[in-house]
């Protein structure tokens, strides 16, 4: 494994940790897989389609999201949105995230 791939692996790991939070943050309103993917990518969050779609299902099975098939349109789509538990979890995660940023900033500042 060369230096570059070590670095890219570490970056991928860092991102992976933030993915759930980013996804939950976008689901205050109903979204289907592809619209969410586009939303995230315009906001600069890099997530693969092959990662996002299974992630949505996993979050649903954990009870953080609820889903509904919309068959009214020409293309049937599965819409996801936060469940009450999901909202609660999201709020706690955001708090945790703020704390993490502060701590990390502190550590990084000291190092400089």
């Amino acid at each position: 494994m060369n230096d570059e791939s070590i670095l890219s692996n570490l970056i991928a790991e860092l991102r992976r940790g933030t993915q759930v939070l980013a996804v939950l943050g976008q689901l205050h309103k109903d979204q289907y897989g592809y619209s969410l993917l586009q939303d995230l990518s315009t906001k600069g969050i890099k997530i693969e389609a092959g990662t996002l779609y299974p992630l949505l299902r996993r979050l649903e099975s954990q009870g953080l999201l609820v889903s509904q098939w919309d068959t009214q349109e020409t293309r049937p789509r599965k819409y996801y949105t936060l469940s009450p538990l999901g909202l609660e979890t999201y709020t706690s995660l955001v708090k945790e995230w703020q704390l993490l940023i502060e701590t990390m900033n502190q550590i990084l500042k000291e190092e400089q």
Binding site: Y32, G33, Y34, S35, A49, Y53, R57, W69, R75, P76, R77, K78
Partner: peptide, 13 residues
């Protein structure tokens, strides 16, 4: 369900 969802997503893509 996965097939249906995957099909819809790919169609969107």
């Amino acid at each position: 369900d996965v097939s249906k969802e995957l099909r819809a997503n790919i169609q969107d893509m």
